[in-house]
Amino acid sequence: MNIMSLPLSEQAILLFAGMVLFTSFSLLAQPRIVAAIRMFAWQGVLLSIVTVMVAVDTGLHHLYISALLTLLMKAIFIPWLLHRLVHKMEFQREQDILHHPVLVLLAGGVLVIFCYSIALPIERLGNSVTQPIIALSMAMVMLAMLMLITRHKAVSQVIAFMAMENGLFFAAVSATHGMPMVVELGIAFDVFVAAIIFGVFFFHIKDSFDSLDVDHLSSLSESDQ
């Protein structure tokens, strides 16, 4: 597919999709928690912009509702909730130090290539501009998983978890132009409840371990003490 031969609106969709992937990478490398939350909010904003653009491009009206839901949940509600919790726990200056940032970023790059190679057969079938985005959204899921395993603070793990949900939503928008409405509402409800429960958990972890470092959570295992 030659990018230059596409109509301008579709080129713009691909450009914004690339920017969404960029936010995934910057989440991966961002040690400061407040900055990471802000970056996550930007990811949500970009995601809803792409959704609106796809909606305009395809003329599917229910995608406007999805875009609105995403904007409310991922760009406003969840970042606001996380910000509030971080302030309440006086956690603003905390950093989640990455031990080998270069290695992690390189691994991220490898993951993206890997995802493109897996999604190649799917792309070949496609006839729509949004098809290349499947590989991209798979990469977002993988990058979020990488972030999840390289971080030590509960807050950053939650951001990674939510970034993974973003990747899944992106896959649904790009591959199939959204899911049936009942499913989409169900998923949004689940994410909403999950965000609240995560908030509850921060307090429990803080009360029990006096920090939000998940390295403390390692007493249950099969190894002999």
């Binding site: 798979m138 899921v141 998983m145 999840l148 509960a154 793990q157 978890f161 993974m164 949900e165 899944l168 896959a171 998923i187 999950a194 429960i197 995560f198 958990f201 429990h204 972890i205 009360d207 029990s208 371990f209 998940v214 959570l217 390692s218 007493s219 249950l220």
Partner: peptide, 25 residues
């Protein structure tokens, strides 16, 4: 609300959440 029960719940949440996200994909 014991420390080990909170640890178990956190693991349960993160692992099952991540796992089931793959199923959504």
């Amino acid at each position: 609300r014991t420390p080990s029960s909170i640890e178990a719940a956190w693991k349960y949440f993160i692992l099952c959440g991540v796992g089931i996200a793959q199923a959504l994909f």
